[in-house]
Nucleic acid binder design. Structure first.
Lengths: 349, 349
DNA sequence: AGCTACGTAGCAAGCGCTTTCTATAGGGTA
DNA sequence: TACCCTATAGAAAGCGCTTGCTACGTAGCT
């Protein structure tokens, strides 16, 4: 029923081996023969059987990308960049299209492990893990073990925007969340703010912790007491920013600035402030993190830390394809750039 | 080196056939035996070889999702929804995890075909195509042929937010872009606007055309002349909205409203208007389409047409998994809901 | 002319799994 | 007790492809 290599071979009057070689483009085949084969392929509308190739050759052209939430541009941008780099041969030759398998973990450790197993089952050529990691020791160990097995099986593993995993030699491209957080808060301090609230991400995650630590570093460096009542944790979404802001305002109406875990949360914070009749930045300054595309369109435009998501994703993709060398020590830290815009200003005298 | 079914069989003192049956959970296996096998699997840390299974069973657990741009939440939301529905068995039993292969076409017809071929090669269990289609006849025919082949090979094909493809019986869940566009413009007309500019999407695409037709229908229905100088085409991005707005203003400073092809474009339009010193909605009203999450956070909040992206994606996913019946006629049209917000108001008397 | 060597093509052995068909052991029934 | 049926396990034949090795012809060389 379905056309197989053998059918093509018969039609082209060659052996299956030859057809395979024409299709894979390694091994010399005489021009005439190749042409005959290609014509047969065309006439029969033949499409290689991927699983069969993968089995025989013990390789696959699937690349896994783990993300927390595919609907979030933060991950979408990285995933898109990874994907744009995984085509083509490792050595730069054309052909060898690879397919990106995007896995939505929703931030769940269990699903992360499940997906890694599924990718292992598919004998994925490479796996890119994006987003922060959960800091639960049991989970860290589970991930570490999985990544080790994947690497053993020949799958290249790259971490993008994620700290290195101990016990593995997976390449890690990490964002300097701590430094970014620090610069952001320092910017606010320089403007004269002293009562700075912080809406953090979910607890037990590296990204959350690093950004928050940066914030606290800045406060400490300037001798500002870190009032625990001015920090609230929540998920990385708009709603969280909205609710947290209301809560913060309830706790201390005298705050003059709010730093949010990311831009999405910051947008929620802005909405809450407006609903409370507070002006930005006149009454309260707001800052985000990531510099997602929409951040510049907020009114006023959001002060934030720009993360080179596309560049990092592209690099991760290239490393995953063996098209770029692993950075020294297997870890590359990428800096964020402070983008000062209209949402932050000096507090009212 | 890598553990195989045979290794597990040896360790559990059973035949490979039995191990396979335990793992696949069809066919009766005595509880004791099953347990022994499962223990061996665990001890050896065995993971099934996906390609081998796929080859032997002539099925795969890959589901393809074609999107224009994975970094765009419009597609991210749909892809995420599809993905959330493809797990589990067709009949509802647990297990049978499926992997989502997300393919970024970038709106290019060639890449669309390339990806469909790649998915055909993988013998994907199902394919979901999202986003509008290019209206070039040659391409339509090429897609139609591909989809037919896929269907022949047993791949279920579902279109999500995309018109039916002639010559195939792929299920289509389409958005009523025309009706949405019409209601939007009617809303502006009802507010008293007469000089309404339109920033359309790229030409030759169904979505673009349908939305624009809705707009024109509304104008015509109210006897308003459709001034061709008030329509500009461009890609579905912010930049396009910005540039187009500047161009429209240059052509006719007296316009009182701008309808954008989608929310992202609308945001760009807003930015351009602000830069030109025009107030929204006092000087110019602005409306978008899609109601992406950020639209409500625009200032003023964006009037737009809400598309149930997540619901549509989920439904597409279920149909692709055979977990929901195909709608009558194989086509389901989903309505958009007009969301009137602050960015539109009556023109200045 | 005789030999080497290279350029091509074919043979055949798997890759690791699924599944049909067959075999065997109990248990139930007459 | 003899027989049949059911429940469960195994044997073995592929699934469609890749690739190491072998075979062959011809061109280049002495």
């Amino acid at each position: 029923m379905t056309v197989t290599l053998a059918d093509v071979a018969a039609r082209a009057q060659v052996s299956p081996a030859t057809v395979s070689r024409v299709l894979n483009g390694n091994y010399p085949v005489a021009a005439k023969t190749r042409e005959r084969v290609l014509r047969a392929v065309d006439e029969l509308d033949y499409v290689l059987n991927g699983p069969a190739s993968a089995l025989a050759a013990a390789t696959s052209d699937l690349v896994g990308i783990l993300v927390n939430d595919i609907a979030d541009p933060f991950f979408g941008i990285m995933a898109g960049a990874v994907q744009s780099e995984i085509g083509g041969q490792p050595d730069g030759r054309a052909g060898g299209e690879r397919l990106a398998v995007v896995c939505n973990t929703g931030g769940s450790p269990e699903r992360e492990i499940t997906y890694l197993t599924l990718l292992q089952r598919q004998r994925a050529a490479a796996v890119v893990l994006t987003g922060g990691a959960v800091e639960n020791p049991a989970h860290v160990e589970a991930v570490s073990a999985k990544l080790r097995r994947l690497a053993d099986a020949g799958t290249r593993v790259v971490l993008c925007g994620r700290p290195p995993v101990p016990g593995t030699d997976a390449v890690a491209i990490t964002f300097d969340n701590r430094g970014g957080g620090q610069r952001l808060t320092e910017h606010l301090i320089a403007l004269g703010h002293r009562r700075i609230a912080y809406i953090a991400g979910p607890e037990e995650r590296t990204t959350t912790r690093h950004r928050l630590e940066g914030h606290r570093d800045a406060l400490a460096a300037h001798g500002i007491e870190d009032d625990p009542r001015l920090t609230v944790h929540g998920p990385y979404d708009r709603r969280s920013g909205y609710d947290a802001t209301l809560e913060l305002l309830r706790r201390d109406r005298s705050l003059t600035a709010i730093v949010a875990a990311n831009d999405t949360v910051a947008l929620g914070a802005c909405a809450a402030l407006r609903d409370e009749g507070l002006r930005i930045p006149d009454d309260v300054s707001v800052a985000g993190f990531d510099d997602l595309p929409f951040s510049i369109d907020a009114v006023p435009a959001l002060t934030t830390v720009r993360l080179p998501l596309a560049a990092a994703g592209a690099r991760a993709g290239r490393i995953a394809m063996g098209r770029e060398e692993r950075p020294p020590g297997g870890i590359a830290t990428v800096q964020g750039e402070l983008m000062v815009r209209g949402s932050t200003a000096a507090p009212r005298g």
